[in-house]
């Protein structure tokens, strides 16, 4: 990635997440993006929780894990 592309990506991210960045700052966003979370059971409340974490981009992809389909 060139530095120009990096700047563009950063700006796009800033625009996308502007309102929440004011709440927890760039370092807060970074902490969320570095976090790996495991949800046990995709129940109603579990899916709702994850939705609220997916929307603010808590889990920005670095290296997605392989899925394990039902055997």
């Amino acid at each position: 990635m060139t530095s120009e592309m990096q700047t563009n990506a950063k700006e796009a991210k800033q625009k996308r997440y502007d309102r929440q960045l004011r709440l927890w700052g760039e370092h807060g966003q970074e902490a969320m993006e570095e976090c790996s979370v495991c949800l046990l059971n995709s129940s109603a409340c579990g899916s709702e929780t994850l939705k609220n974490l997916v929307l603010p981009g808590a889990f920005f992809p670095r290296a997605p894990l392989p899925c394990v389909p039902p055997s």
């Binding site: 949800l39 670095r62 290296a63």
Partner: peptide, 15 residues
Amino acid sequence: PRAGIGSFTIVDGAT
């Protein structure tokens, strides 16, 4: 190295 940094995983055996 930690796998899947910055990701979520759902563990659920239900259909």
